[in-house]
Design a protein around this nucleic acid. Sequence first.
DNA 1: ACTTTGACTATAA
DNA 2: GTTATAGCCAAAG
Length: 120
Amino acid sequence: MKKIPSEPRQPNSFFQSVYEVVRLIPRGRVTSYGAIARFLGSGKSARMVGWAMNASFTEIPHVPAQRVVNSAGLLSGKFHFGPGDEMKNLLEAEGVVIENDTVRDYSVVFWDPAELLNEI
DNA sequence: ACTTTGACTATAA
DNA sequence: GTTATAGCCAAAG
Protein backbone atom coordinates (compact mmCIF):
# COMPACT_ATOMS: atom_id res chain seq x y z
CA MET A 1 0.00 0.00 0.00
CA LYS A 2 1.44 3.28 -1.03
CA LYS A 3 1.38 6.26 1.14
CA ILE A 4 -0.95 9.00 0.10
CA PRO A 5 0.74 12.29 -0.74
CA SER A 6 -1.01 15.51 0.17
CA GLU A 7 -3.03 13.64 2.73
CA PRO A 8 -1.12 13.19 5.96
CA ARG A 9 -4.17 12.11 7.97
CA GLN A 10 -5.80 8.75 7.81
CA PRO A 11 -9.42 8.87 6.75
CA ASN A 12 -10.54 6.76 9.68
CA SER A 13 -8.71 8.69 12.32
CA PHE A 14 -10.20 9.62 15.65
CA PHE A 15 -10.67 13.11 14.28
CA GLN A 16 -12.83 11.94 11.43
CA SER A 17 -15.13 10.10 13.79
CA VAL A 18 -15.49 13.22 15.86
CA TYR A 19 -16.41 15.25 12.80
CA GLU A 20 -19.17 12.83 11.90
CA VAL A 21 -20.72 12.99 15.33
CA VAL A 22 -20.51 16.78 15.48
CA ARG A 23 -22.21 17.06 12.12
CA LEU A 24 -25.08 15.02 13.51
CA ILE A 25 -25.82 17.56 16.23
CA PRO A 26 -29.28 18.96 15.48
CA ARG A 27 -29.61 22.67 14.83
CA GLY A 28 -30.30 24.59 17.99
CA ARG A 29 -28.86 21.90 20.21
CA VAL A 30 -25.44 21.49 21.78
CA THR A 31 -23.35 18.73 23.25
CA SER A 32 -20.16 18.34 25.24
CA TYR A 33 -16.71 17.08 24.41
CA GLY A 34 -17.01 14.36 27.00
CA ALA A 35 -20.31 13.11 25.58
CA ILE A 36 -18.79 12.79 22.13
CA ALA A 37 -15.69 11.09 23.41
CA ARG A 38 -17.77 8.70 25.41
CA PHE A 39 -19.96 7.91 22.47
CA LEU A 40 -16.87 7.03 20.48
CA GLY A 41 -15.73 4.67 23.19
CA SER A 42 -12.97 6.79 24.63
CA GLY A 43 -14.77 8.49 27.45
CA LYS A 44 -11.61 9.91 28.93
CA SER A 45 -10.35 11.48 25.73
CA ALA A 46 -12.57 14.54 25.77
CA ARG A 47 -9.52 16.71 25.21
CA MET A 48 -8.87 14.96 21.94
CA VAL A 49 -12.29 16.00 20.76
CA GLY A 50 -11.29 19.59 21.35
CA TRP A 51 -8.08 18.99 19.52
CA ALA A 52 -9.98 17.51 16.64
CA MET A 53 -12.14 20.59 16.48
CA ASN A 54 -9.03 22.68 16.21
CA ALA A 55 -8.37 20.99 12.90
CA SER A 56 -12.02 20.93 11.89
CA PHE A 57 -11.94 24.38 10.32
CA THR A 58 -10.11 23.05 7.30
CA GLU A 59 -12.44 20.08 7.04
CA ILE A 60 -15.05 19.76 4.37
CA PRO A 61 -17.98 19.68 4.76
CA HIS A 62 -18.14 22.33 7.39
CA VAL A 63 -18.19 21.10 10.97
CA PRO A 64 -20.55 22.96 13.35
CA ALA A 65 -17.96 23.23 16.07
CA GLN A 66 -19.96 25.97 17.77
CA ARG A 67 -22.41 23.31 18.95
CA VAL A 68 -19.75 21.71 21.10
CA VAL A 69 -19.20 23.15 24.55
CA ASN A 70 -17.69 21.89 27.75
CA SER A 71 -19.48 19.99 30.48
CA ALA A 72 -20.54 23.22 32.19
CA GLY A 73 -22.11 24.60 29.02
CA LEU A 74 -19.36 27.19 28.75
CA LEU A 75 -18.22 28.24 25.28
CA SER A 76 -14.68 27.19 26.00
CA GLY A 77 -13.73 27.26 22.35
CA LYS A 78 -14.96 30.71 21.50
CA PHE A 79 -11.43 32.04 21.18
CA HIS A 80 -10.72 29.64 18.36
CA PHE A 81 -13.45 31.07 16.18
CA GLY A 82 -11.53 34.21 15.53
CA PRO A 83 -12.06 37.66 16.97
CA GLY A 84 -15.16 38.61 18.89
CA ASP A 85 -18.00 36.36 19.94
CA GLU A 86 -18.46 34.61 16.67
CA MET A 87 -19.24 31.33 18.35
CA LYS A 88 -21.93 32.92 20.46
CA ASN A 89 -23.33 34.64 17.41
CA LEU A 90 -23.60 31.39 15.50
CA LEU A 91 -25.35 29.65 18.37
CA GLU A 92 -27.83 32.44 18.91
CA ALA A 93 -28.59 32.34 15.20
CA GLU A 94 -29.70 28.76 15.78
CA GLY A 95 -31.91 29.69 18.70
CA VAL A 96 -29.51 28.83 21.49
CA VAL A 97 -29.53 31.47 24.20
CA ILE A 98 -26.09 32.39 25.50
CA GLU A 99 -25.76 34.08 28.84
CA ASN A 100 -22.32 35.14 30.05
CA ASP A 101 -20.56 32.83 27.55
CA THR A 102 -22.63 29.96 28.87
CA VAL A 103 -25.54 28.10 27.32
CA ARG A 104 -28.76 28.89 29.14
CA ASP A 105 -30.94 25.86 29.96
CA TYR A 106 -27.99 23.72 29.10
CA SER A 107 -29.65 20.55 30.31
CA VAL A 108 -32.57 21.29 27.96
CA VAL A 109 -30.70 22.07 24.75
CA PHE A 110 -28.10 19.45 25.47
CA TRP A 111 -28.06 16.70 22.90
CA ASP A 112 -26.45 13.37 23.60
CA PRO A 113 -25.20 11.34 20.62
CA ALA A 114 -26.92 8.38 22.22
CA GLU A 115 -30.21 9.91 21.12
CA LEU A 116 -29.40 8.67 17.66
CA LEU A 117 -30.35 5.24 18.89
CA ASN A 118 -33.62 6.64 20.16
CA GLU A 119 -34.65 7.92 16.74
CA ILE A 120 -34.53 4.42 15.40
C1' DA B 1 11.31 7.85 20.22
C1' DC B 2 10.48 11.23 23.90
C1' DT B 3 8.32 15.36 25.66
C1' DT B 4 4.81 18.72 25.58
C1' DT B 5 0.32 20.15 24.71
C1' DG B 6 -4.57 20.90 25.04
C1' DA B 7 -11.72 24.00 22.66
C1' DC B 8 -11.77 18.33 29.04
C1' DT B 9 -13.86 16.17 33.24
C1' DA B 10 -14.57 14.54 37.88
C1' DT B 11 -13.53 15.21 42.39
C1' DA B 12 -12.16 17.71 46.54
C1' DA B 13 -11.66 21.70 49.49
C1' DG C 1 -20.92 29.48 43.53
C1' DT C 2 -15.45 29.27 43.25
C1' DT C 3 -10.43 27.45 42.76
C1' DA C 4 -7.07 23.52 42.86
C1' DT C 5 -5.57 19.08 41.51
C1' DA C 6 -5.12 14.76 39.23
C1' DG C 7 -6.23 11.72 35.43
C1' DC C 8 -6.65 11.15 30.65
C1' DC C 9 -5.13 10.10 25.76
C1' DA C 10 -4.04 11.12 20.90
C1' DA C 11 -1.60 14.37 18.01
C1' DA C 12 2.25 17.76 17.33
C1' DG C 13 6.86 19.37 18.07
